[in-house]
Design a protein around this nucleic acid. Sequence first.
DNA 1: CGCCGAGAGTGAGCCGCCTCACAGTTCGGA
DNA 2: TCCGAACTGTGAGGCGGCTCACTCTCGGCG
Lengths: 233, 233
Amino acid sequence: MSLLAGPEPRAPAVNKVAILRQHELFRELDKDSCDQIAAYAKVREFRREAMIFSKGDPGFCLFAVVRGKVLVTSSSSEGKSVVLNQFDKGDIFGEIALLDGRPRTGDATALTDCCLLALERRDFLPILTKKPEIAIKLLEILSGRLRRTTEQVEEMMFLNLRGRLAKTLLRLTEGADSLSAELSQNELSQRVGMSREMINRQLQVWSREGVIALARRRLTVLRPDTLADIASR
Amino acid sequence: MSLLAGPEPRAPAVNKVAILRQHELFRELDKDSCDQIAAYAKVREFRREAMIFSKGDPGFCLFAVVRGKVLVTSSSSEGKSVVLNQFDKGDIFGEIALLDGRPRTGDATALTDCCLLALERRDFLPILTKKPEIAIKLLEILSGRLRRTTEQVEEMMFLNLRGRLAKTLLRLTEGADSLSAELSQNELSQRVGMSREMINRQLQVWSREGVIALARRRLTVLRPDTLADIASR
DNA sequence: CGCCGAGAGTGAGCCGCCTCACAGTTCGGA
DNA sequence: TCCGAACTGTGAGGCGGCTCACTCTCGGCG
């Protein structure tokens, strides 16, 4: 869009249609509509730590993750923060502000270098009215999000440090081949929403009990069932 | 549906179409579709305290509130509970389970005697595919819910007793002509998610300061701006 | 090679909220 | 009219998590 030499990296050649097709939202869409959306969609790259959007911004677009990971958080005036969601390859995010036209509900930052597809509101909304199956898929996705967020409310209400940490560890390592995750205890404490020191003490206990294994910036779950047990009490 | 004389009260004569039209979801719907939905919709009445559905139930229908108030909560195995949502006349609820076909995420109980319209999944889903404008309205409603629930997560994370109580009082009394609400301190403590005793102590302080007025099962906000101030810190 | 910064581990004290216990008050119904 | 149940008010003690302050380890880089 800009003619200036900006910080925006050169957009690589990306088969946008193929990307879109990866997502359930567009999988069954007919070829013409898909081509049309793809034509409008912009490829945007972000470096690790880069801000994608901020809480309160007007939300004009929907993002699909082509490559990398995105974290959505919210911060208080005193500097505390909660993790609201994490999105990986194939996920879409940013749809709330897009749908109701109100400001973004959280901050989105790139957790790793990543590549996104951005769909503008004005290009996306017409599709919804023409293709109800897309709208219905989107309804299912939103329902899932609402379930997830409701679960988060329950966790915060019902679980203490042990339970919340156990749940977080399971979520972080699920999908990973070796049940292991790479992050500092500081980052972990942000995910759990409790202090680094307390997190550390509990990890020590579990490490001594052989439930997990600890290394610098790396954590491996050895006995997931034990954690699952703790998390569901 | 049943031929037996059950506990279900006699359904009164209700103009279902008029009820449906009250809701933004159906306001702009054409007459034929609206008649059709109304024909399928069942009127159901519930007494105060009655259970409408339980967490984990398969969710086959969507409800619209014709009269009364409904509270949706979730409970832990230890008996603690959180209030997830309250629905008043004109609201719809129960749409998540309906849309994604998975179990209900909370318990719904009648806060007052109330009258609901129930729309079955099999009758409602076809409408969505035929009338994309309905699907889009529903997307907006879900977005709003997600915003509200996200806000709840932020509150639980960032606010202490004072802040959360202040927010709850404002929510409870907003819309009321006299900024006053009728409920026991026990019920209030459930809304806030903190102990009755602590709630009481804070109310005493505010009462002495003239911020609120207290009476048996009645609470009046005298200086809403003071509370708003406290809530946003 | 040695330094420096990021990360990990740990004690001590504090603070907010919870629970238990109990007394006082109000109100509806037998 | 009196009893019991629901509701309100309040003290005391305990616990979980936070903060502060510090040490120790590791790894990268000049």
